[in-house]
Every structure is written in structure tokens, then in C-alpha cells.
């Protein structure tokens, strides 16, 4: 950081022409690493490696990804058995076909059934299929979720309102390496006649992480 970090509001009228990070939420207390990140970005902009607009545009692009992407993939897998096979055998290819390329990580889709319920976590950090679901929810990154879902998954699922019979195997995927996971939830009974678009509207973020099931009425 080229100058001491101000802890007061200022209007950039302090006589030097270097880049500043965009405004941050007012309530936020910056940790050491957040400040380090801001400082790194400022230096990259100052040295002309990236422009502030490029950083902003990258954040904007990422923020525009919503779980609706993943929901389209799931709905297609419900109505098209061949697509489902493709999704289960080569998920990167299958999601790229719907316009959601995942180029930096390998995607694996896992299907829920009457026998197995899948749920995803990253105990080391916050690995998540961001290209399909957007940014992970705060609870996904919390220490409580990360520690407890691998050791008492049924209790955690119960807290999310998902109570599974004892004969259903709970399978937790701890995605700490190069693979990202998408859960294909069970299509709710009674929705067989719905269109692909109507089905996609039922598929929630939490059902694709695996902490919830899809309900017939959203």
C-alpha cells in the first residue's frame, strides 16, 4: 500500500493520483487478508497490469452468475435421459452444451436417488461450482458447516429441514482438490407433465448443493 490506510471517509482530494479500490460496504471490518487483497489490486492497477475497469467487469460478470444456470442443467437432465447420461459421464461437456463452460476445473454431477443422498462441502475453503451456482452462500463457507457436515451430516441436514430415512445413504463430497460437484436432485413426484422451463424454476441452489430436496411447488 503506497500510503497508510485511511480509516475515515475521504473524497480523493488528497493530492495524489493513484488507484483506489472501489467503495466497500460500510459495515465491513477489513481483515489482514482483505486489506492485502485490496493493496495487491491497487498495485496491479497502478503498474498497469490490469485496469480498474477490467477488475470491475470481472466481478460484475461473476456476480451475474446465478443458480438459474445450474437449474437449467438439472431440468434438462430430468426431461432428457440421454442428456442425463452425458451429464453423469462428462459433465463439463454437458454444461458447456447449455452455454455454461467450465474451463478451469473438472465438474462431476452426482445424482440423488431413493438409495443415496449427496451433499457437497469443501472443508478446506469454499470450492464450489461457481460457473453454475454463482457465489457460494455465507453458510457454505462457515466453519460450522464445513466441520459438521462431514461428521454429523444428518443433524446438519435436519437443521436445513431435510430429514432422510435411515436406509438412505448420506454421501458427503468433500471437494478439496480439482473436482467440483453438482448434485442432481430427485425430480419431485407429480411434476412429470411440466415443461423444462417450469421444472427449472423449481430447482433451488440448496438442492444442487444437497442440503435440500426439490419441492413440487417451489
Amino acid at each position: 500500500m503506497p500510503h497508510d490506510h485511511h480509516d475515515h471517509e475521504h473524497d480523493h482530494a488528497h493530492g495524489h493520483a493513484h488507484a483506489h479500490a472501489p467503495p466497500q460496504p460500510d459495515h465491513k471490518v477489513h481483515s489482514y487478508y482483505q486489506i492485502l487483497g485490496v493493496a495487491l489490486k491497487e498495485l496491479l492497477v497502478e503498474k498497469g497490469v490490469v485496469t480498474a475497469d477490467e477488475v470491475r467487469a470481472a466481478i460484475e460478470k461473476r456476480d451475474q452468475i446465478t443458480p438459474a444456470h445450474g437449474a437449467k442443467v438439472v431440468a434438462r437432465s430430468w426431461v432428457d435421459p440421454l442428456y442425463r447420461i452425458k451429464l453423469l459421464t462428462n459433465a463439463n461437456l454437458a454444461v458447456a452444451e447449455l452455454g455454461f463452460p467450465m474451463t478451469t476445473t473438472k465438474l462431476v454431477a452426482v445424482e440423488n436417488s431413493e438409495e443415496v443422498h449427496n451433499v457437497v462441502v469443501c472443508t478446506l475453503c469454499s470450492c464450489y461450482p461457481r460457473e453454475l451456482l454463482g457465489l457460494p452462500p455465507a453458510w457454505y463457507k462457515s466453519r460450522a458447516y464445513r466441520a459438521r457436515i462431514v461428521s454429523e451430516p444428518r443433524a446438519v441436514l435436519g437443521e436445513f429441514g431435510t430429514n432422510l430415512p435411515d436406509n438412505v445413504e448420506v454421501r458427503v463430497h468433500d471437494s478439496t482438490a480439482d473436482i467440483r460437484y453438482l448434485v442432481i436432485p430427485i425430480q419431485p413426484p407429480g411434476t412429470e407433465g411440466k415443461s423444462e422451463e417450469e421444472l427449472a424454476a423449481l430447482v433451488t441452489r440448496d438442492s444442487m448443493i444437497g442440503v435440500a430436496e426439490v419441492k413440487a411447488h417451489g
Binding site: V150, S151, R171, D174, T176
Partner: peptide, 20 residues
């Protein structure tokens, strides 16, 4: 799960899959 945590009380086939 029961191989990871001795006091695990969920289903006998409950599991954790890791990429190693």
C-alpha cells in the same frame, strides 16, 4: 463415516467421498 468417527450414529453406509 463409522471409520472416520468412532461415535458416528447415522446410517451404516453413510460415507464421505474425498478427492485425493
Amino acid at each position: 463415516q463409522r471409520d472416520l468417527w468412532s461415535d458416528y450414529s447415522g446410517g451404516p453406509n453413510d460415507s464421505v467421498d474425498l478427492d485425493l
